[in-house]
Amino acid sequence: MTIAVGFEGSANKLGIGIVRDDGIVLANVRHTFVPPPGEGFLPRDTAKHHQQYVLSLLQQALTSASLKPADIDVICYTKGPGLGAPLVSAAVVARTVAQLWDKPMVAVNHCIGHIEMGRLITGAKDPVVLYVSGGNTQVIAYSMNKYRIFGETIDIAVGNVFDRLARVLNISNDPSPGYNIEQLAKRGTTLLELPYTVKGMDVAFTGIIGKLETLARTNKYTKEDLCFSLQETSFAMLVETTERAMAHTGATEVLIVGGVGCNKRLQEMMEVMVAERNGKLYATDERFCIDNGVMIAWAGLEMFRVGVVTPLRETWCTQRYRTDEVDVTWRD
């Protein structure tokens, strides 16, 4: 039985996960850096957070899995994409324990982590993947050993619009700005017109945040309506591009991953489209949607099983690392 530990710290969530090669999750612990309302998370503060919590989190993961370091077979960490100093903070501990415990390492692409764990948890086999978070927005499908990006944002991530609207409206970042926007949106009644920008398979969101900021400054609209309008408009754009990817690939499954994927309204809107096409929608809850260590452990374990090992000297991190750069050697 092969057991992998995964370190994830590419954004404001620090997660450590332990998973067994039969797909059983043995530990999934996380600590989130939550900035005060009106503020975003800055790289330096986030790195400091990760450095402060990573060792207690690692002990917690080992304890909850009832494992000793000797029981671990491979150490996986997030290589990128993400914020430099926070990524390195997790990687430094991963490198150190790999040497202390004498274990091999596997460098994992963060986006691939989301996709592979989404497939593991939901059982989706060959889905069109909508990956939506604070830093990424991509429509992805697998073909010939690559996760190919069919469409993506050409400016900022959809979750970044949520984060920025929360700052403008002084909405709490606890537990996350997106969660609080979702709750406010439930009480929205009026749909305000926002720029709906779909260019072929790609989407753009700066027009939406610009318009929302303008509308917010007039003080004529409620927070509830602003949040509601953001969700309805941006999610419609994502459903449209996902539908086109389904039509193009002939896929019948859709898998939503990434932090924004927790949003019930997004899942509901996607479900309507997928049902009309007689397909099946797969999504996960906040334990797995939001960045976590299990996704890195599981993707790394899949890579390790087909012989991928990252030499210690090459265990660097990189802020830019596209989903389609990775050779997916573990899938047919």
Binding site: V54, L55, L58, Q59, V92, R95, L100, W101
Partner: peptide
């Protein structure tokens, strides 16, 4: 930045004294 990472790797060693 280096001092922070140096401290982190040393703290990791201290966290697993048996190893």
């Amino acid at each position: 930045s280096m001092m922070n990472f140096l401290r982190l790797t040393i703290d990791t060693m201290l966290a697993f004294p048996d190893y």
